[in-house]
């Protein structure tokens, strides 16, 4: 047990400053400082506000993670950091902090892909990853289907959103319903009191020709507009908007397409394991429907607990630990932050 690597992971790609510490596949600390409250009045994450918050939170969050894990920094065997994709200025705070740690401790540095880290985090919750697996990553910035033979170096994209990310659609619909920001948890809550069959909203990229040209891609922009039209029509007629029903029906449309395509991706690639990660994976309806549809098709579903689905440093540490264990070469101290890092590049 103790010969497994002690890895510290840093995550600053969006509005969460995350510092995680793992020993091999065991989670020791997951300290997260979020600036989400500072973004609420802007209706979305403001990059400069997020970057300022990362700088302020970095040392306190490092301190908290070490205290939670009961380790001293000098015990750490390697540093891992999200080097992309994400907000450029935000990523740079984490990358610079990680290099300072690597320099100060004289330990190797691993610049890792944010999306691969969202997949790797389930090692901490449910043990070694099945290989290969299909992974679906759904968050405010990403909506991707990935074929993952080995999360430490081989991640292949098979589909992605062609417009808005799923979490972005939740934010936009929450705004038009006057629910607030971030939209995901608020819609989830309202939907519990609503009828998900009340309104039949469109399922993006699900028509026959789309299933030919965009088989594993997603689109949520049209859905968002359909919801806006429906709501505005009610308002124009002077009738009240059934917020709970709209939330439930919108959520149903998103979750229906996500789970249908994810299950199809497993079937057509002969893969028996589906992993779901990213902030939208915290959605209760997504978890329930994915469970139901996977069971029906004999697919094993793995979804980490909600706290590990949203951005955190533990996921970065988990992926870093895999890289140490599989003998990957560390990144150079010239490691750049890469806001558009392709998902195929697991390590920079």
């Amino acid at each position: 047990m103790s010969d497994e690597p002690l890895v510290l992971g840093l995550e600053t790609s969006c509005d969460e400053t995350g510092v995680g510490i793992v020993r091999g596949g065991t989670l020791l600390a997951d300290a997260v400082a979020s600036s989400v409250d500072q973004h609420a009045r802007f209706g979305g994450v403001v990059p400069e506000v997020a970057s300022r918050a990362h700088l302020e939170a970095m040392v306190p969050t490092l301190r908290r993670a070490c205290a939670d894990a009961g380790v001293s920094l000098s015990d750490v065997d390697a540093i891992a950091v999200t080097s992309g994709p994400g907000l450029s200025g935000a990523l740079m705070v984490g990358v610079a902090a990680a290099k300072a740690l690597a320099l100060a401790l004289g330990k190797p540095l691993y610049g890792v892909n944010h999306l691969a880290a969202h997949v790797a985090v389930d090692i901490l919750e449910h043990g070694p990853l099945p290989e290969p697996a299909i992974a679906m990553l759904v968050s405010g910035g990403h909506s991707s289907l990935l074929y993952v033979p080995d999360v430490s170096y081989d991640v292949q994209p098979i589909g992605r959103t062609i417009d808005d990310a799923a979490g972005e659609a939740f934010d936009k619909v929450a705004r038009l319903l006057g629910l607030g920001f971030p939209g995901g948890p608020l819609i989830d809550k309202a939907a519990r009191e609503g009828d998900r069959a009340a309104i039949r909203f469109p399922r993006g990229l699900s028509a026959a020709h789309d299933m030919r040209d965009h088989r594993f891609d997603f689109s949520f922009s049209g859905l968002k507009t359909a919801v806006a039209r429906w709501v505005e029509q009610r308002e124009a007629e002077g009738t009240s908007v059934p917020v709970n029903d709209v939330s439930a029906s919108f959520q149903e449309a998103v979750v229906d397409v996500l789970t249908r395509k994810a299950v199809l991706a497993c079937q057509e690639n002969g893969v028996e394991h589906l992993l779901i990660g990213g902030g939208v994976a915290a959605n209760s309806r997504l978890r329930a429907m994915a469970q139901e549809r996977c069971e029906k098709q004999g697919i094993t579903l793995r979804v980490p607990r909600p706290g590990l689905c949203t951005d955190n440093g533990a996921m970065v540490a988990a992926l870093g630990a895999r890289m140490v264990q599989t003998g990957r070469t560390p990144s150079d101290l010239t490691l750049p932050a890469d806001s558009s890092m392709p998902v195929t590049l697991v390590q920079a």
């Binding site: 300022r52 990362h54 700088l55 040392v59 301190r63 740079m92 705070v93 610079a96 902090a97 300072a100």
Partner: peptide
């Protein structure tokens, strides 16, 4: 910020 976070993390 790159300089400040580097300095404060090195110091820590």
């Amino acid at each position: 910020r790159v300089g400040l976070v580097t300095a404060t993390v090195l110091g820590y």
